[in-house]
Design a protein around this nucleic acid. Structure first.
Lengths: 162, 162
DNA sequence: TAAAAATAGTTGACTTTTCAACTATTTTCC
DNA sequence: GGAAAATAGTTGAAAAGTCAACTATTTTTA
């Protein structure tokens, strides 16, 4: 077998796992973990956002959103209100109890990000961010394509082997 | 509260989650998922590597390594042999049954990586990879520092409140 | 050399995330 | 208007990863 060079995917994996661990450690005093901080920030920045849109923004499964938001509600950081026009939709709101936590979340996130980019010049960082954004976007499209292909194969099997 | 701009951390999160989902889909026929592909490749590229070194290479918890390797052994893709000089150490070896899977793992990994970087010029990609490598390295150091600090606080509490 | 500390690995409980199947509501279209 | 399809969200099972406490060796050190 030939020689296979490493790819940047390994570093993405390490960065993501360590970022989660970091948030788990520093947010522990507030009863939340890495799994809630993103959603808390998004609800704060988009008052009244729906669960569906929350999932779309972060390319999350809708089940993930339901569970994260349930936890935030139990802790009293988020209020869930049904949309009056379309009662399928649930709209999310930050409570006053969440203000403290939000400050901490942003503060710790910025500390972490600044540690990582300490020695990167601003224009390089900007470039990096744009490349990552583009790749993240492609990954969502690509994944949908692969999933769709798989689904079609499953359907075909179901039709030919009933 | 002031306005808080987004960071690249969000894109890292999306990229990592979608990469895992992709590997889960394409490796399903071989009985393995995203959680084993990295370890399978590393054992192939470092015949006889120990679990400890495997953890260090990918900045994984040692418990993660134990479980991933156990699964690979159950599937017959990896052999675990105790080191003769130091019997704490377990050395890992690829079996012939794993050759097929390894081909597929590398092939699918490269397809995925190429989709993501399609429109990035090679020198930009090289630069991106170096930045990510550096940041991943910092994240490991930084995390150790935060963990150590936390431990000291816990120890202090234990000593003053017995 | 014996006790203490360090090292390698395992285990069980827990969190986060996903998938697939489900309910409930709204929209489409015959 | 009503059946069918689409949309929004929920749920339970499963995977991956982590932590903390554990066992079994090996190394350090007093």
């Amino acid at each position: 077998m030939k020689h296979y060079p490493a790819t940047f995917l390994k570093y993405i994996s390490i960065l993501q796992r360590n970022t989660s661990r970091y948030f788990d450690m520093v947010l522990e005093p507030f009863g939340i973990g890495s799994g809630q901080q993103f959603f808390l920030r998004q609800i704060y920045e988009n008052e009244g956002i729906s669960m569906y849109d929350l999932a779309k923004i972060g390319c999350f499964d809708k089940g993930t959103v339901t569970k994260a938001v349930q936890k935030l509600e139990e802790l009293g950081y988020v209020k869930i209100l049904a949309d009056e026009k379309d009662r399928r939709i649930k709209r999310l709101h930050i409570t006053s109890a969440a203000q403290q936590v939000l400050e901490k979340v942003y503060q710790k996130r910025d500390l972490w990000k600044n540690s990582l980019t300490e020695n990167i010049p601003p224009e390089k960082e900007k470039e990096l961010e744009q490349l990552l954004e583009k790749m993240a976007q492609i990954s969502c499209q690509e994944l949908s394509a692969v999933a769709k292909q798989r689904e079609e194969i499953h359907d075909k099997r179901r039709n030919t082997q009933p």
